[in-house]
Write a protein that binds this DNA or RNA. Structure first.
Length: 365
DNA sequence: AAAGTGACCAACCGCGAAGCC
DNA sequence: AGGCTTCGCGGTTGGTCACTT
């Protein structure tokens, strides 16, 4: 949703309050950022890189805490962000699957989504949870489940994350469009898979999810997952999306003993080359053109970006005028592709994930 | 047209981890 | 080793816009 530029709105009303309390006497500005502040921050990043946030204030560049500066950079000023673009169906799918895999590790999840921040993902998920809660008539614990008016009347409860033993909404009770009755929730819940063919955990087939999932995707589903890693075990149904640095490992005879296999340990590194970058507007340090989760690495090594990073997630559709992309999956994958699914559909898979081989260190973790 | 509500978004806070001295 | 500082993350809050009633 296109919004008034930062600074147009003021949190708490007025022209941005100043907290004189924090710090040693000097007022710390809070609230929305002005264009001038953004410019100062950008200049600081240009010169020093996305680091030394505290020095921004200590050196008197901005009356903002380092924390606030970092947040502003990460969420709004980073040049590789998609701003103003809703999550596409594919992004939505990725979020769902990674959330099932990682839980509410938004920062981690966001590394797999070009141009999306943890805040984006978090907000997206939260909104989605609320939507489903409403659809299912199963109020979420916590603020998210309440309408604004209700919010004002009730104390804030626990977070979404702190839900107790998960109650997986019974899909039988959910009027799923096109869902076939009698299908195991795991099957029904994943419409882009051929529900009848997805091997269930504990099935006697002995088919490793890695090798099993892909071939069972129907043609249309496959078309919806054009990213290259979709074909190598992107989806698994044994509780967690597997991670694997070597997709060939899936074919190993002792596949069951293998670490998780999701071939995502190469996070969409530096991500997209966004034509909408303000590259011409401000001089980015070398390596910043594709700075993302790799901010620090990119800057530390000052890797010149000699060629655009591959578009890791080209399926997101056409580019938005301001640098993001619009979903372009008209009929096959409507934007509300998952809208008919219960919010906790992956909760049944949300068991403590097996020890993951951490994503490649290049991911910045 | 106004009120109510949902969706989206920006930014804050608290906490924990990591790094430094 | 322990305290302090900085940074990063997840959760939460509150504002605005858009849509519905």
């Amino acid at each position: 949703m296109a919004r008034a530029p930062g600074g147009a709105r003021r949190r708490g009303g007025g022209s941005g309050r100043r907290d004189a309390a924090a710090g040693g006497g000097e007022a710390v500005r809070k609230g929305h950022w002005t264009a001038e502040e953004d410019a100062v921050l950008l200049e600081h990043v240009r010169v020093h890189g996305p680091r030394d946030w505290s020095s921004i204030r200590s050196k008197g560049f901005l009356p903002r805490t380092g924390k606030s500066c970092r947040l502003r950079w990460v969420n709004k000023l980073r040049p590789d962000l998609k701003t103003g673009c809703k999550f596409s169906a594919e992004e939505e799918r990725v979020v769902l699957e990674l959330q099932a895999q990682f839980g509410n590790k938004w920062a981690r999840i966001s590394t797999y989504l070009a141009g999306r921040t943890d805040n984006d993902v978090k907000n997206f998920w939260s909104t989605r949870q609320k939507r489903f809660a409403r659809l299912l008539g199963t109020p979420l614990r916590g603020r998210s489940s309440r309408s604004r008016s209700a919010r004002a009347q009730a104390p804030v409860a626990s977070s979404l994350e702190s839900r107790p033993a998960t109650v997986v909404p019974c899909l039988d009770q959910v009027p799923l469009e096109g869902s076939s009755s009698g299908v195991h929730p795991c099957r029904a819940a994943i419409p882009f898979m051929d529900a009848q063919k997805v091997p269930l955990e504990g099935s006697s087939s002995g088919v490793h999810p890695c090798s099993a999932a892909t071939p069972f995707m129907d043609a249309q589903s496959a078309a919806l997952a054009p990213y290259d890693w979709a074909g190598s075990g992107f989806v698994s149904f044994d509780g967690a999306l597997p991670l694997a640095s070597d997709s060939h490992a899936c074919s190993s005879s002792n596949a069951a003993a293998l670490p998780p296999l999701l071939p995502l340990d190469q996070p969409p590194c530096p991500l997209l080359d966004f034509p909408g970058l303000p590259a011409a507007g401000w001089n980015m340090a070398p390596g910043f053109a594709n700075a993302g989760a790799m901010d620090h690495l990119a800057f530390q090594e000052l890797l010149p970006v000699t060629q655009p990073a591959p578009k890791m997630l080209p399926f997101f559709g056409t580019e938005c005028p301001h640098g993001g992309v619009k979903s372009e999956l008209p009929d096959a994958a409507p934007d509300n592709f998952f809208d008919d699914l219960p919010p906790d559909m992956f909760d049944s898979l949300d068991q403590p994930p097996p020890p993951l081989s951490p994503p490649a260190t290049s991911s910045g973790f």
